[in-house]
Simulated scan of single mutants.
Amino acid sequence: MSALASSTLKFALPFTLLASSALADVNVYSYRQPELIAPLTEAFTEETGIKVNVAYLVEGLTERLKAEGDRSPADVILTVDIARLTEAVDAGVTQPLMTDTLAKNIPAEFHDPEGNWWGVTTRARIVYASKERVPEGAVTTYEDLADPKWKGRICTRSGMHTYMIGLTSAYVVHHGPEETKAWLQGLKDNLARRPQGDDRAQVKAIWAGECDISLGNTYYMGEMLADEEQRVWADTVRLDFPRFDVEGGGTHVNISGVALTKASRNKEEAIQFIEFLTSHHAQEIYAEANSEYPVVPGTEASDLVKSWGELHPDNVSLKQLADERPDALRLTEEVDYDG
C-alpha cells in the first residue's frame, strides 16, 4: 500500500507523488498543522469513504500552485487569514464555488460574494495582559494601545506579519490612513523591544517580565495550555477583548478558510469535503481542535474558548480588510515599525 493510501499525510510529500493519487481522493494543500487537520479528514473519510491526502506547506502555497498550473494535483487549499486567501484568488489559482449548502451554512460576511473562498473558523486578535501588572479593564480599545501610558510595556511580533497587517487594515477602515499612521507610530513608541517572534513568544516575554501586554490571536492560548512548558507562560496572562472605539466597532476577527483550486481533478469529491467543513459536526471538531470560533450559526465554541470571555466581533467585512491591505503595508513601512 502506498503512503497516499492513508487518510492524512503527516508530512508534505513530493508533489509528483501526490499527483498519482486515485481520482476518488481529495488532495489538499494546507498551511495548518497536521494535528489540527487530522481530526477533520478522518471524520470526513469515515462519513463518506473518500480519502483525503494533505500536503503541509510552511510557505509558498500560491507560488507552488502557479508553478504547477493545470498539472497541480491539489483540489483544495486550506489556510488562514483573508490575505492569504485573497492572494490565491488574485493569482488565478482558485475557481468560484457556490452551492446551496454552502450559502445556507456560511453567513455572507464570512465568504466571498462570488464564492472564491469560504471561511470555516474565526479567530480574534486580542490583548494578552499580565495578571500581576495590568489591572482588569485597563485595555478596552485598540486605540488605547498608542497611549504613552504604555510606553516600554508592549510586545508584538513583526508589524509586517499578515496577522498584524490584518489589524492595521481594520484600523484604516475605521479611522483612515492618517490616523492609522499616527496610531502605528504610537504603538511602536510603546514597544518594550524590537518586534520579534510569534504570538506565543510575546506571552513568554510577559512571563519573563520583558513587557506587560501583547497582541495575539486567541487560539494561541489553547496551544500554550496544551504544552507543558508553555502552560507556565499562559498561566501568567489574561485575555482582554479590546474593541475599536467607533460606532459599531468590535474586536478584530479574521478567518481560516478554504477554496477550490482551478486545477481540481476531483471536483465532486472536493466540493463534498468543503461542504463537510461547514457542517455542525465538522465545525465542532475544527473549533475544538483549533481553539477557534465556529462560523456556522448554532454551533458553539468549545468550553475552553468560551471561558476566555465574550466576543463581540468588529463590523468590518473581510473584503474591506483585503482592500485596505496595501495601505496597511505602506503605513507600517513608513513608520519603520520593525526598525
Rank of each mutant, 00 (worst) to 15 (best):
D212H: 12
F11W: 11
V80C: 07
L329G: 06
A287D: 13
T99F: 15
K10M: 10
Y142E: 14
E47I: 03
G176Y: 13
D90T: 10
D147G: 08
V76D: 08
A287V: 07
F11S: 10
H312R: 11
V89G: 05
Y286L: 04
G298A: 06
A328V: 06
W150P: 02
A259W: 14
L40T: 08
E275S: 01
R71E: 15
Q283L: 02
G298H: 13
T141N: 09
A74L: 08
A5Y: 07
E300Y: 10
Q230G: 03
V127Y: 00
S307K: 07
Y293P: 03
W150D: 01
A3M: 12
S302H: 07
T8D: 12
P39Q: 04
D75T: 03
R64G: 03
E223M: 10
E87A: 11
Q202E: 15
E63I: 02
V80P: 00
A88V: 06
L4A: 09
A201W: 11
T86A: 11
I37E: 00
H174E: 03
V335A: 02
K319S: 12
A205V: 04
E229K: 13
P96S: 13
N266L: 02
L187T: 07
R325Y: 10
E229V: 06
S307E: 10
A91F: 06
T140K: 15
L318G: 11
W233V: 02
H111R: 15
N53M: 10
L13P: 07
T94R: 02
P148S: 06
L329M: 08
H252I: 14
I37S: 00
A282G: 08
S130C: 09
L321Y: 11
V305R: 06
N266D: 12
E300L: 12
S158A: 10
I126F: 04
D336F: 05
Y219Q: 01
G49P: 12
E132V: 09
Q320G: 06
Y128V: 00
N53I: 04
S214C: 10
T332M: 11
D338I: 08
E47T: 10
D245A: 13
M164E: 13
T332K: 05
G119L: 09
S291Y: 13
L260G: 03
I271Y: 06
L85V: 00
R231K: 09
E178K: 12
K66I: 12
L260D: 03
L304N: 09
V93W: 11
K151N: 11
V28N: 09
L13A: 09
V296M: 03
A3H: 13
V232G: 00
L260S: 00
T168V: 15
L18S: 13
A170N: 06
K151Q: 15
D90Q: 14
V120Q: 10
L329N: 12
G137Q: 07
L331G: 00
K66P: 02
Y128W: 13
T79S: 08
V93S: 06
T45E: 14
Q33K: 07
G166S: 13
L277M: 14
D212V: 04
T41Y: 05
N217A: 14
A170L: 09
Y293V: 03
E210C: 04
L277S: 02
Y337Q: 01
A38S: 11
W150N: 01
G176F: 12
S130P: 05
A270M: 07
D90Y: 02
I274D: 03
F11A: 04
A103K: 09
H281Q: 14
S158Q: 05
A67W: 04
K181M: 12
